[in-house]
Simulated assay, not measured.
Amino acid sequence: MRLLTATYLLLLTLNTSAHAATGVLGDWITPTQSVVRLYPCGSDVCAKIVKVSPTSPETTDLKNPDAGQHNRPLCGLDVGMGFQRIDANHLDGGHLYDPQSGRTYKGTITAEGDDLKLHGYIGISLLGRTEIWHRVSTVVACK
């Protein structure tokens, strides 16, 4: 019985450590219920939509200012690019694309446990807006 308890505690500790060690990387659910994956792309960190919200009125990039991109599917769309790792929990220097408005913002990203804070801005950071996403524990795929 002690061996089982010790093994369970060890596995729980390893699972928690592995979970915490992922920092900003992984799958995150947005306030609109889409899921975005942050992943390494070369020396940067990028973000792409891996599941579009079931309540989304669009499934393509209709708000993009480039009319030639309007038929581009939202699922699989890169919405974060060029982020540099400051450390496992902090990214800076990248750009965030908002498919709901068709606008691109400078951005910073910070992981705090199972919360991800994305701060997007135009010009200076003080005039920006922060949005909080939550970690998704299961891997999802485009549908």
Rank of each mutant, 00 (worst) to 15 (best):
K63C: 06
N89H: 04
T108L: 03
P73H: 10
T104Y: 02
D87I: 09
L74M: 09
W28G: 04
T60E: 05
K63D: 12
I29D: 01
R85Q: 09
D115F: 07
K106T: 08
R85I: 13
N89Y: 06
C41I: 01
H70R: 11
L116T: 08
H90Q: 09
R37C: 02
I109V: 10
Q100K: 11
Y97L: 02
S53L: 10
P40D: 07
H119V: 03
E58L: 12
Y97F: 01
V45N: 00
G93A: 00
D44M: 11
S101D: 10
L116E: 04
R103P: 04
R103Q: 14
P99C: 01
P54T: 15
G68M: 06
P65G: 01
N71D: 15
S53Y: 07
Y39S: 03
K48Q: 09
V45M: 00
P54L: 13
P99G: 07
D66S: 08
V52F: 03
T60S: 04
F83V: 01
D66F: 12
A88T: 10
R72V: 15
S17P: 06
V52A: 08
F83H: 03
D44T: 05
E58W: 14
G120R: 10
A20E: 14
I124T: 14
I109S: 00
L96R: 06
A111W: 12
A67V: 14
I49K: 02
T108S: 08
L62E: 07
S125T: 13
T32Y: 03
R103Y: 12
H70G: 07
H95W: 04
V79W: 00
N71K: 12
L96K: 13
E112L: 07
V45R: 00
S56N: 14
T32C: 02
Y39M: 03
P54I: 15
L91C: 08
S43D: 10
S101T: 15
S17N: 10
T30A: 01
G94E: 00
D27I: 10
V35N: 07
S53G: 13
L91S: 02
L38G: 00
I49S: 06
C75N: 02
V36H: 03
T59P: 03
A20L: 11
V79P: 02
I122Q: 13
V45Q: 00
E58K: 15
N64S: 12
G82E: 00
I109Q: 01
G42V: 04
P57N: 04
S34T: 15
V50D: 04
I109Y: 02
A67Y: 10
L38K: 01
K48I: 07
V36K: 03
G26A: 01
N64Y: 10
S101L: 05
V36G: 01
V50I: 14
A111Q: 14
F83D: 00
T55L: 14
L91F: 02
K106I: 02
G80R: 06
D66H: 14
A21Y: 11
L38H: 08
S101K: 10
S125W: 08
Y39C: 07
P40F: 02
I29E: 13
E58I: 15
Y105F: 09
S53V: 15
H19I: 15
D114N: 11
